[in-house]
Amino acid sequence: MEKKLTTTAMLFSVGFVFLLICTVGAFFYGIQIGTEKTKARYVNEADDAKTTTASATPYQQQDLVSFYHTVFLPYREFQNEWFAAMNKLSQGKSFEATSMFKDLARLASTKADEASSIDMQKSPLLGEAQVSYIRSLKLFNEAAVNAAASAKKLSFNELMKNVEQDKTYLSAAQFALNAQQQYYSAMLKWSATVDLDIPSEYKAPALLELSAWKNFNITIKNKVMADQLMTRKKLTAYYPHDLTSRVDELVQSGQATKLKLHSVSAVVDLLINTEAVRSGDFNESKSRLYQQALLPQLPFFYPETN
Rank of each mutant, 00 (worst) to 15 (best):
Q180C: 07
L294G: 06
Q121P: 09
G92C: 02
K111Q: 13
S117T: 12
A84V: 06
P303M: 04
A40V: 00
Y169C: 01
A151D: 01
A149W: 11
A176H: 04
F301Q: 10
I118T: 14
G280F: 13
L19C: 08
K102N: 11
A179E: 03
T6C: 07
A276N: 03
P74R: 03
K88H: 08
N273K: 13
P58G: 02
A46L: 00
S55G: 11
L159T: 09
F216P: 01
L139R: 03
A149R: 07
F72C: 06
A85Y: 05
V194M: 05
A85N: 07
A108M: 01
F156N: 15
K260E: 13
Q180K: 08
F300Q: 11
K214E: 09
V247P: 02
V163S: 00
L295H: 03
T38F: 00
G254H: 08
S90R: 09
A212S: 12
N141W: 06
S185C: 03
M225E: 01
F301C: 10
Q91D: 15
R41L: 00
M160F: 15
P74H: 00
V264F: 02
L19P: 05
S150F: 12
G254Q: 11
Q228R: 15
F95Q: 10
E209P: 10
M160C: 13
I21M: 09
L235G: 00
A173I: 08
P205I: 02
Q297I: 10
K122M: 11
Y169Q: 04
T274H: 09
L196Y: 15
N87R: 13
V131I: 12
Q182V: 12
L261E: 06
F78R: 01
A56W: 06
A151H: 01
